[in-house]
Design a protein around this nucleic acid. Structure first.
Lengths: 350, 350
DNA sequence: CACTCGTTTGTAACCGCTTTCATATTATGA
DNA sequence: TCATAATATGAAAGCGGTTACAAACGAGTG
């Protein structure tokens, strides 16, 4: 059942059926009614593939994420799809598993796909090939928007968070509690969140005249297993830190596992502040202080930036649209895990 | 840049280019090389939209889930996409938010989409419209596979879990600990997991000669908020249960929130067994006993069932392919939350 | 060398929709 | 009532591939 069949049955031409479907006003009311009736009777839905081919455009948006399982991404996806459905866009998601190779392959296969736009959390901010491929999409008229992570030297739109400030507050909050030996479990410094959170960490220390101890900076790669090893390393130092800033949610889980396995208690044995909230912990004894972000809203915003590009393209790209990079604010949720045991015990003046 | 451009530049016909792209053997080696060279030079990728239109088929699979945020679904998605990528299928995901209306709209819009197959966790097992629409997909040659939830009276393939048995074991484990006053926070009984888990619960009680107390069966609709209210109701009974079987992961979170807010401790004040593991709890003091399922594998399996349908279709549907309904086994992970305080205190013989 | 036969290649129709352009129809005003 | 403008409709080409069919080519054979 195609548009010709409908046309025949309604006694009109396919062009007219097409007009009815697309809400063209130049159709007699009576004709329109007849056509709609036939469409309904036959339970007909026009092939979007044929339509896409014909108009050279689709309503499909690709979303490329490094890790499908991380709750950050599912939450952000929620925001994206909610916003997307307002505009009747479909979102396909692809997982790179933090593997640049896979990312390239996905981008390669996307070249064939006639997508309307592309949202990506790139694996690495310095990967030349990804940067190149993304640029090609833009050249081909397919807008690209970055999420959370950046691409060095690029001028794509993007939605990020104020990670430096967030990390700064996290660490400062530990300092205010009296901590001086504060470690960070960092992430890949080929990613903006990775190095920015370290930067915020260092800034906080420096601005409080605390010297930076390189032994207290251990890379957990934003992975649970690595982070487990990272905190282990920290705790086995001769002079272990009294507090740890865990710069990612997976990292935090790794830390918690280490603590549990070694019978260590938050505050009691170690203070901890995390980055990105972990909903499930709310219901447990782990009252974790974290830097939180408006994750869902970031998803909506990234979709809005994309939509803005579409609009400008349609309006004829009057002038070059200026790049927009939105930085959302983070906030600290204090739940107690930042507290310093020594201080609690009355030793207020250190 | 299309197939004609490539053809011209390579000095061959578009048909030949098409043959090269699709690996047709009837192409002289020299010609093939030349064409591939031109393709590479021009960084050309054939439009999959045009291809799909032409061959009347795509590599796209739709996956419809009720709740994008539930970790069960992200895990299962992982399994689906991992398997799908083996066959070079793309997966689009749609969220119904447990709303049948939305589900219908999604299915409606999918009619236009030329998809290869459909995986769905339907909102309700008794929704006539969804059932009807799904049947239409099958009639149109688009295989449908169910996941986790069922459609009453349908004969779609599906991957489910042995929920009755799982619930049975959960409750029996409580009974073995000495509990007699065991409640269940149930789910929507318009879904297979919803009523099956209740059934397993009842079976366990009955088989141990424990009478079923309807006051102890409260519906939490598999939602956190509702489940919070459900356990509240239970705890406010004159004769509250000593143990609760929480039949879903969101339900469990609702319970945990109630306990925390009311300063109640697991085992100490109440025993709890959940359905579906919650990874994050592993790192906390909440040593929750749960019924676990091979969630990731369920995702892979559902994709395999779909692929099987594709294969049979290609092989000409020799005979009617028999419906396959796979039930995966659950297992109990005992972590201690099933323990019965009274018994621990030495009161072994009740 | 003529004749088959199998391999390569090209032509053109088709997939189902959109859209331009020309034509038919209707409404408007003198 | 008729010229003219505005509106409604249809024919056909095009989007970028695939593929049936026919034609060209080259090798092997008598």
């Amino acid at each position: 059942m195609n548009i010709y069949d409908i046309a025949k049955e309604a006694g009109v031409s396919p062009a007219t059926v097409s007009r009815v479907i697309n809400g063209n006003k130049n159709v007699r009311e009576e004709t329109r009614r007849k056509v709609l009736e036939v469409i309904k009777e036959n339970n007909y839905a026009p092939s979007s593939v044929a339509r896409n081919l014909s108009i050279g455009e689709s309503q499909n948006i690709a979303f490329i994420v490094p890790d499908v399982e991380n709750p950050f991404f599912s939450k952000v996806l929620q925001g994206i799809t909610d916003k997307a459905s307002e505009f009747n866009y479909n979102v396909f998601m692809f997982g790179t598993k933090e593997d640049s190779e896979r990312e390239h392959r996905i981008l390669e296969s996307l070249k064939a796909e006639l997508i309307k736009g592309l949202i990506i959390i790139p694996v690495s901010e310095i990967d030349k090939e990804t940067a190149f491929r993304l640029k090609n999409f833009e050249k081909a008229g397919i807008p690209v928007v970055l999420l959370d992570r950046d691409i060095k030297g690029s001028s794509f739109d993007g939605v990020f968070s104020e990670d430096i400030q967030g990390a700064f507050e996290a660490v400062e909050c530990l300092i205010n509690e009296g901590h001086r030996k504060i470690a960070i479990i960092s992430g890949p410094d080929t990613s903006r969140p990775g190095h920015d959170r370290v930067e915020g960490y260092k800034m906080a220390l420096t601005s409080h005249q605390i010297p930076i101890n390189e032994d207290y900076i251990v890379n957990g790669k934003f992975l649970e297993e690595e982070s487990y090893n990272a905190i282990k390393t920290l705790m086995e130092l001769e002079d272990p830190p009294t507090a740890v800033f865990s710069s990612n949610n997976m990292t935090t889980l790794g830390c918690l596992r280490y603590l549990k396995e070694n019978g260590m208690k938050l505050v009691e044995d170690i203070s901890l502040v995390g980055f990105d909230d972990i909903k499930e912990l709310e219901y447990t004894d782990i009252n974790l202080t974290v830097v939180a972000r408006p994750v869902y809203e970031m998803g909506k915003e990234v979709m809005e930036l994309l939509e803005r590009r579409f609009r400008y393209k349609q309006e004829g790209d009057k002038q070059k649209v200026v790049t927009r990079r939105n930085y959302v604010k983070t906030w600290l949720i204090k739940r107690g895990s930042e507290k310093y045991k020594k201080f609690q015990e009355g030793n207020i003046n250190e």
